[in-house]
Computed example of a mutant assay.
Amino acid sequence: MKIKKILEVKNLKQYFKLDKNTVIKAVNDISFDIYKGEIFGLVGESGSGKSTTGRSIINIYQPTGGEVYYRGKQISDPKIFRAERKFINRNMQIIFQDSTSSLNSRMTIKEIIEEPLRIQKVYKNKDARFNKVVELMNLVGLDKMYLDYHPYECSGGQRQRAGIARALSVDPEFLIADEPIASLDVSIQAQMINLFKKLQRENGLTCLFISHDLAMVRYVCDRVGVMYQGKIVELAETKELYRNPIHPYTQALFSSILVPNPNCAEERTRIAYHPVSDIFSEEKSQLSEVSEGHFVCCSTLSF
Rank of each mutant, 00 (worst) to 15 (best):
Val217Cys: 05
Ala272Ser: 15
Ala162Lys: 00
Glu67Phe: 12
Tyr228Phe: 12
Leu287Asn: 03
Asn261Cys: 11
Met1Glu: 13
Tyr149Ala: 10
Asp33Leu: 07
Gln189Phe: 04
Lys10Ile: 11
Gly37Phe: 05
Ser102His: 02
Tyr219Ile: 06
Gly156Cys: 03
Thr22Val: 08
Phe32Cys: 01
Leu42Trp: 11
Arg85Gly: 00
Arg243Ile: 03
Ala272Glu: 15
Pro260Ala: 02
Ile39Gln: 06
Tyr35Pro: 06
Gln74Val: 08
Tyr70Asp: 07
Ile80Asp: 11
Ile30Ser: 07
Met216Glu: 08
Gly141Ala: 02
Thr269Cys: 04
Ile232Asp: 04
Pro78Asn: 06
Tyr152Lys: 09
Met227Val: 09
Val290Thr: 08
Ser288Asn: 15
Ser285Gly: 15
Ala162Asp: 03
Gly156Met: 01
Arg129Trp: 10
Ser288His: 14
His247Trp: 03
Tyr61Phe: 15
Pro63Lys: 00
Gly163Trp: 01
Ala215His: 07
Pro245Thr: 01
Leu205Asn: 05
Arg218Phe: 08
Ser102Pro: 03
Ser99Gly: 07
Gln62Arg: 14
Lys36His: 11
Arg161Pro: 09
Cys154Val: 04
Ala182Arg: 00
Ala177Tyr: 05
Tyr69Ala: 13
Asn11His: 13
Phe295Leu: 14
Ile34Gly: 03
Pro172Gln: 10
Ile164Tyr: 09
Asp178Trp: 01
Phe196Met: 08
Cys207Val: 05
Glu202Gln: 14
Gln189Lys: 10
Val224Thr: 10
Arg90Tyr: 01
Asn21Ile: 01
His247Ala: 05
Leu214Pro: 01
Ile176Ala: 01
Asp77Tyr: 06
Lys4Gly: 09
Arg90Ile: 00
Val122Thr: 12
Lys86Met: 14
Thr238Glu: 11
Val226Asn: 12
Arg201Glu: 15
Ala128Met: 13
Arg71Asn: 14
Pro262Thr: 10
Ser288Phe: 09
Glu289Leu: 08
Ile119Ala: 08
Ser51His: 02
Glu38Trp: 03
Ser56Asp: 08
Ile109Glu: 05
Ala165Gln: 06
Gly204Tyr: 08
Gln191Arg: 13
Thr64Phe: 13
Gly49Gln: 09
Val133Gln: 04
Val290Ile: 14
Met107Ala: 11
Arg129Pro: 10
Gly230Cys: 06
Arg270Leu: 15
Thr64Gln: 02
Glu267Ser: 14
Ala162Val: 02
Asn125Trp: 14
Lys124Ile: 05
Phe16Glu: 00
Phe209Asp: 10
Ser277Glu: 12
Ile57Pro: 11
Cys298Met: 15
Leu147Pro: 06
Ile75His: 04
Lys198Glu: 14
His212Gly: 05
Ser281Asp: 15
Thr100Gly: 03
Leu7Ser: 09
Asp77Thr: 05
Cys221Lys: 01
Ser255Gly: 09
Met1Leu: 12
Pro275Tyr: 02
Ser56Glu: 09
Lys10Thr: 06
Asp127Met: 09
Asn104Ala: 07
Gly66Ala: 05
Leu117Ala: 02
Arg218Asn: 15
Ile279Asn: 13
Lys36Gln: 15
Pro78Asp: 04
Glu266Ser: 12
Glu115Tyr: 05
Met145Arg: 15
Ser187Thr: 13
Lys2Ala: 11
Leu208Asn: 06
Gln286Pro: 00
Tyr152Asp: 11
Phe40Ala: 10
